[in-house]
């Protein structure tokens, strides 16, 4: 994952956003939870840094590889 982009691992619905813009995260931190086929799938930070922009909102429908949020160093 380049440029600190966190993308959806698959099709589903955003059910929880665990960070706010500006928050400091470590690589591997859970940042968003997607629900797909009735399973909650944690999405983790691709690298350490500051959450720059959250592109989705809770309840949004996402497809595989859709941008969820960006992290800047």
């Amino acid at each position: 994952m380049k440029n600190g982009e966190v993308r959806s691992p698959g099709v589903g619905k955003v059910i929880e956003i665990l960070v706010t813009a500006g928050a400091q995260v470590a690589a591997g931190d859970e940042v968003i939870v997607i629900e797909s086929m009735k399973v909650e799938i944690p999405v983790t930070a691709s690298r350490a840094g500051r959450v720059e922009r959250i592109v989705v909102a809770t309840g949004d429908q996402v497809q595989a590889d859709d941008l969820l949020l960006t992290i800047s160093v």
Binding site: P9, M37, V39, I41, P42
Partner: peptide, 8 residues
């Protein structure tokens, strides 16, 4: 693998 699309 339930972590990938719930395994569907």
């Amino acid at each position: 693998d339930p972590l990938q699309g719930g395994g569907g």
